[in-house]
Design a protein around this nucleic acid. Sequence first.
DNA 1: ATTGGCACTCGCACGGAATGAGTGCCAAGC
DNA 2: GCTTGGCACTCATTCCGTGCGAGTGCCAAT
Lengths: 344, 344
Amino acid sequence: MQNERRLSVLRAIVEDYVKTEEPVGSKALVERHGLGVSPATVRNDMAALEEEGYITAPHTSAGRVPTDKGYRLFVDRLTTVKPMTAAEKRAIAGFLDGAVDLDDVVTRSTRLLSQLTRQVAVVQYPTLSRSTVRHVELVALAPTRLLLVLILSTGRVEQRLLEVTEEVSEETLAALRTKINTAVSGAVIAEAGEALRTIAQPADAPADAPQDPLASAVAEALIEAMNDHRSDERISIGGTSNLARFGDSFDTAVRPLLEALEEHVVLLKLMGEATAGGLVTVRIGAEGPYQELSQTSVVATGYGPGDEALATLGVVGPTRMDYPGSMAAVRAVARYLSRILDEA
Amino acid sequence: MQNERRLSVLRAIVEDYVKTEEPVGSKALVERHGLGVSPATVRNDMAALEEEGYITAPHTSAGRVPTDKGYRLFVDRLTTVKPMTAAEKRAIAGFLDGAVDLDDVVTRSTRLLSQLTRQVAVVQYPTLSRSTVRHVELVALAPTRLLLVLILSTGRVEQRLLEVTEEVSEETLAALRTKINTAVSGAVIAEAGEALRTIAQPADAPADAPQDPLASAVAEALIEAMNDHRSDERISIGGTSNLARFGDSFDTAVRPLLEALEEHVVLLKLMGEATAGGLVTVRIGAEGPYQELSQTSVVATGYGPGDEALATLGVVGPTRMDYPGSMAAVRAVARYLSRILDEA
DNA sequence: ATTGGCACTCGCACGGAATGAGTGCCAAGC
DNA sequence: GCTTGGCACTCATTCCGTGCGAGTGCCAAT
């Protein structure tokens, strides 16, 4: 048995189906693709493929449609990620280079990705957890009201308002600012918390020493800001209007997806763990954790400075999507995005 | 002619149609609403209303549907905005009070509004232009790289990265920081620019004096940040999945709307000028500036501290929407939001 | 193993008839 | 002069029944 040809047939079916959105029959297949065999032969192969669960016929007298398993095989073994053309690369670079700050970078990436793939694009903001503290700024907005600004290595800026009970002099504040910055500058988030606690209650002080209320309040707020996982969930979404091309199956496919897009927690879970090193994850239909989304696939990858995956980015769309194209686009955007974060 | 009753009939038609999403006939009308007259009478009224363009029949043997003009009359004259119930008020307050910063307030408002109205909610971030400068912070990230942080009275924080050609000492920076803050603290954006320019090139200095390159670069960047209208366009969108209830007319209604939601500029224009003082604007179908959106209506209002409309917020949905409910919700959320900004 | 031939299966598009909600109009009633 | 019951009429929608054709599965031949 020519296993080789069977795979070609599967590949051809996937490609045709993605393009035409219609079940593909044996005759059309041999015409469109240059398989040098007759329809009958292809039919035999198709029967075998169906037997093994890679394709299925929506009804007796229709062509075949790939199953999730079929897409899976296609993605795993039949795909050579086509690199972006030079023109596309230039477009990406030009599009992202104009960004003025982190927010803008993320927004532009989202838009870019959705345009490249004509799918819904999702870009997670760089996560706090592994980033390092670059600077902490304390600003007295009013005598008893402080603004804490936390600047991280990713360029992210977190802010917190803090009411204190007693008035704070500018000198006290300056001293505290210096102390804090000395302690936490350059530290990764996780360790910074430790250092902050020490400031609030120095280890060498007698255990019953009066705690410095200002320092501990500030430390508390900063630690909270660092641990605030709410901000880990910040996400940018774009290209929703591409869902319009779903056309059929509005209720079973589009609605659940729109709902998922609103639930950022769900969405993040859907995107999965960020993978580093240019690896692109593909999750096909029911492979995902939500059965309502059994008709949608996710193509995602991690990104971040220095090959470290700080956050995830990808596209979400129908299982019937252009996987090679999406994978290439996702990889390319992640790459440029990482490079930009490197520079920053 | 009982003009009074005719209006009741129109009101009844609108209410029924909004609820059932189906053309409403004379018989159903008299049954559902307690009009004390016979279907035949109602039919006469309907004929008159159709003559005047308030309602229309999709086809001969169907019921009537309100026209844009009909909705307009309904909104203008037949609506008494029902106040929120105490429970709803508590829910709103509870929902918004937990917010930690401006971003969070806006996000929560969006979600709240979309849940209350079951429509797509749009909330614009408070605009820069009328707000005042609270504080400017300069941080040296590296010897030749500065981070400028601009803190505004609305709680908004703008940041800019700035590369300078010469190394900057901590003292120089501190001096500049003090000078800038003295000059611009409390100033409204428009005036702050003037003050900054003076710092870069003092008026009392000889005209040919060497300009301070650091000061002028910083001033330049700050002015740019203040004038940056890109940030005026920041918008939060929520409740897109409510579009699923559009059901029919996907291509003519949902797709254009999804596209508009991606184009923030378009969206802002659609929302229109922010109206102050609790006034809610209703824009029905083709009244808006985009003909693709002839099937969508906008219910919006301005909000901001102290009855000053800094930004817009509202809902977008099908012309066939619950106007009284939406108006009440929009007004209530705007009110709470303004109050929160007042406090901050 | 491949191929041409052939009978068979169904989904779908098309057409006509039945259905029924809703209308417009008219003549009678209050 | 409104209002109302009656009645004929319209027309979108639904339901069948039919024919068509794409596509299949199997078989015998190569």
